[in-house]
Design a protein around this nucleic acid. Structure first.
Lengths: 191, 191
DNA sequence: ATCAAATGATAGATCTATCTATCGATTTTA
DNA sequence: TAAAATCGATAGATAGATCTATCATTTGAT
């Protein structure tokens, strides 16, 4: 599906990608036949849209990157907004968990150079805000911004898993992440 | 390999399991042939030790559970030691990352009921210490002990990845985890 | 030194997944 | 409504992985 698609086909393609996402979250090893069935489409048709399983995965990867990119870009990242940036980011990203899932957990996505580069590019604006917050003294300067961002990533992923498995209410997820991220678990008022 | 093995065979079996661990960390999709080659053993011999790929994975899972169990049991978990328990735990578990890797990341391990139960059992003593620390007011009581433990797990795994990729020095790993876990990233002295 | 156990190499049986080819039916579009 | 595009179903070609069978060779305990 390299060529331009009609709007109708584009919508159908998107429906296939979304169905694939939903299925793979439940069963990461699903075969192309299972994916086709789940998407309500014949195997042949599935292959008319994506030329291989690997390409399908890469589509999902790009979709995720695109989605997260747009989400991040919508959050103002100038110096006046640094203080609220992180919480806005967390609020916005928690619901995207399933789409982001593949970025870190499918082999054919994880080891792709192009996607790896796009992922790194995605992180830079966030990292810059973190660095400014460190310089302003809002965040600890004892650790690298890279580490802080990685922890944020991990927390987001953990949270999404917990929400998905029904262990955490979706509403309380963001504040849980933020509290943990900001203060850890040591009770305040103690050394 | 259900029957008892001679000490020599037992050692060879252990060598195979260790080699498998090392390879799968680098290449999670490695085939049985690749595993055999990497372990310096013929495919036939590999199958003389494990009857299937899935059983091999379960062996690795059990190995990991066993290792973590022993490690946890060595840390005194009575009330007087609660304050130092977590740091001792982190120090001891960071180096075991590769062995633990499979517990959370291989499908045939992750979806096995027996291992799932063993994993849950593994967590209870740690969870109890966390609960006592919460009751003593050392840890925040605003969140569940389950969440605290999950975050600790995530941090341990993230750290092990970062050490493996050379982004964090092994020596500094444990204190990084502990600091993050205790205090988060908000600079102290701020609200 | 001998003999049973264990091994490696190889070939192959079996299975499963991916992808293609074909064709009649359905839908879209002009 | 007629032509073109797209579809689902199916069968099959290809490929790769798992596991087994066989046999000559090596290892190791006595």
């Amino acid at each position: 599906m390299k060529n331009a698609m009609s709007p109708a086909k584009k919508a159908r393609f998107k429906a296939i990608l979304d169905a694939t996402t939903r299925l793979l979250v439940e069963k990461p090893t699903a075969s192309m036949s299972e994916i086709a069935e789940y998407a309500g489409v014949g195997v042949a048709t599935l292959h008319r849209y994506v030329e291989s399983r690997e390409k399908l995965m890469l589509h999902l990867g790009h979709q995720a990157i695109q989605l997260v990119s747009e989400t991040i870009e919508e959050i103002p990242a100038d110096e006046e907004n640094d203080e609220t940036y992180i919480s806005q980011l967390v609020e916005a990203l928690v619901p995207l968990g399933d789409k982001i899932y593949f970025l870190g957990h499918d082999a054919s996505v994880y080891y792709n150079k192009e996607l790896e580069a796009a992922y790194e590019k995605l992180r830079t604006p966030v990292k810059q805000v973190i660095q400014r917050l460190q310089e302003k003294g809002e965040f600890s300067q004892a650790v690298s911004s890279e580490w802080i961002l990685n922890v944020l990533d991990s927390l987001l992923f953990l949270t999404w898993q917990q929400v998905r498995e029904g262990h955490i209410a979706e509403k309380s997820a963001a504040s849980l992440v933020l509290n943990t991220f900001y203060h850890g678990f040591k009770a305040s008022g103690r050394k």
